[in-house]
Simulated scan of single mutants.
Amino acid sequence: MKFVDEYRNSTLIHRQAEEIARRSQGQSLKFMEVCGGHTHTIYKHGIEDLLPSTIDLVHGPGCPVCVLPMGRIDDAIAIARTDGVIFTTFGDMMRVPGSQGSLLDARASGADVRFVYSPLDALKLARQHPDRQVVFFAIGFETTAPSTAVTLLRAQAENIQNFSIFCNHVNVIPAIKAILDSPDLRLDGFVGPGHVSMIIGMRPYTFIARDHHKPVVISGFEPLDIMQSIAMLTKQISEGRAEVENQYARVVRHDGNEKALQVMARTMELRPFFEWRGMGFITQSALKLRPEFAAWDAELRFKVPGIRVADPKACQCGEVLKGVIKPWNCKVFGTACTPETPIGTCMVSSEGACAAYYNYGRFGVATERTRTLA
């Protein structure tokens, strides 16, 4: 398949592996792949097994489902249980646990919760059910925010009054800043998120290289993309450089998608602060609807608890999201917490690091670094 097969070429991938080994020269390096999509590619295709044992890849907070705190899930469930509401959401959010169960549990107990593929599907439901209030659970980084913004503008243009948005869009840059300021983790570079960068471009990452002297390589999602990105990171380090480079040039432009940024700016603004699972409150790290769109703001239309809820003590999803531990370091990983019986969001989401480790058989040090025994 064009634009897939050529990025899974084993000859080119092994050539990149040789370059990485040559340039790293036994130096211990720790790189963070920010995006959950990268994590799944790494373990699905066994990329870590091609790298020198001295190179360690850790996971970042790039899974939008995973970073939502339990309190926001409880707020969503409260809206869903309101009489006359059709609550719509992406499929990943259906099974994410709050303190009183999940949206799937709410549906089982009588709430009208439906999964949709886009916010425009939710708007279509609002047209079809003028006697019901249709709410869309908007989540995601800057990648998905433009589609929410366009849907909001369409709802305004058509004056659809029975449609509203529960906005939980988050911004990746403040999360990366929080990680860099954390004393828990030493990083040598970042594999930058490709889909987010398609929207925001390269410029927002410059502070990482300028202020923290860490290289960043924005990467695509195929195995060769990631291997080439790691090679580019090791090359920068071997040459004493710290720059923002773009491996994903076939999709990402330096200034991003200006039209998408404009429609986001027209409909949304920064929240003063927002809670991230495992990372606490981060200033200006999420979006809310602008006052002129208050009529379509579910947080204003419905009564929500708005209470901060602590994560289950057994779950270490927060530490996984910050790259402090590997999923198999969590005591409940693969035992009490599985994709069928998830305790934390990292095991629920299709982009969650715990789900990646579980689905591709990474249950401990022995399976993670078998090549060191060869």
Rank of each mutant, 00 (worst) to 15 (best):
M93W: 11
A265S: 10
Q128D: 14
G84R: 07
K30C: 13
V85L: 07
F31C: 05
V34W: 02
V85M: 06
D112K: 03
D255Y: 08
T151W: 09
I77D: 08
G37T: 15
Q247N: 11
A157G: 02
R154E: 15
S109Q: 14
E292K: 11
A366D: 15
D131G: 07
A145V: 04
R81W: 10
E6Y: 12
M264T: 00
A145E: 01
G98D: 12
I42Q: 02
P339R: 11
E33F: 06
R308L: 13
K288C: 14
F302L: 04
P204R: 02
Q16A: 01
R241I: 05
A249S: 15
D131P: 12
L180T: 02
I139E: 07
F190H: 03
T11C: 03
G36H: 04
T341Q: 14
R271E: 13
G306Y: 03
N329Q: 01
M94C: 00
G60P: 02
A260S: 14
R72L: 13
L68F: 10
T370E: 14
M202I: 11
G84E: 12
Q27E: 15
L233G: 10
R253V: 12
S109A: 12
P215T: 10
L51D: 01
N257M: 12
T267M: 08
A76Q: 12
R362N: 01
V348M: 04
G323N: 03
E239S: 12
F3G: 00
V320I: 06
K124H: 11
